[in-house]
Nucleic acid binder design. Sequence first.
DNA 1: TTGACATATTCCCATATAGGCATGTAATGT
DNA 2: ACATTACATGCCTATATGGGAATATGTCAA
Lengths: 117, 117
Amino acid sequence: MARAATTSDVFNAAAEPRRREILVFLLDSERPVSEIVDKLGLDQPSVSKHLRVLRDVGLVRVRRNGRHKLYQTRADGIKPLHEWSSLFERYWSHQLLRVKERAENMARTAKPSTGKP
Amino acid sequence: MARAATTSDVFNAAAEPRRREILVFLLDSERPVSEIVDKLGLDQPSVSKHLRVLRDVGLVRVRRNGRHKLYQTRADGIKPLHEWSSLFERYWSHQLLRVKERAENMARTAKPSTGKP
DNA sequence: TTGACATATTCCCATATAGGCATGTAATGT
DNA sequence: ACATTACATGCCTATATGGGAATATGTCAA
């Protein structure tokens, strides 16, 4: 078998860097295709194809306005990604934690004399 | 051009459902390949190939122990996924966020189990 | 209607898969 | 040395892809 389709789920759809850029770009407000083309420097058919994939997995919504079609990111669609990656959160080396540990080690080793590495 | 290689980044490597299962399975402790094969019901060459991809993108570490090779997830490698998806967080509904927070608190206080269906 | 604009789709192609199967390699025990 | 265990890799194939170019569809304006 080949790789799963890009339209099979959010993980596959978001694996494409251009699509991730599009999703971020369309996060705050709806925008026509031409603006995506201009701002991201892709050619129009490519953008349309990426938007098709994103639409198929429910990551963008679309609305027609005259000749334009206005796309916007449906942020809720990203949740599965965020929730899955959150499973790993408690294993991350947290900066604050490491700072605290170092501080404690320094306090422990530095107590007897004056600064001993 | 074809799709980007699965080894090109975390997003592509984690797009495969089996690899995501493996990553979760190897999160708590290091385990030999045979155990992944048994628990996840995949055949051995498939697991080895998935582990190869995960290793190439730095999502697992490996250590030899006699005839066995012990793999474990490198949780830090998941961060880019989590950070990117966090860009969308402020557009999510608060209700679900609270549910998620409560689930996280429960997971934190409860003892982590090794069974992940 | 005709024409111009905006977006979508189709066709072609090089490339990278994931699965199944067979084989290769490394470490151990006898 | 040999057999066994544990894992890795090679080969094959069907399939899906993303880019480029060309073309189709859809909408408005004059």
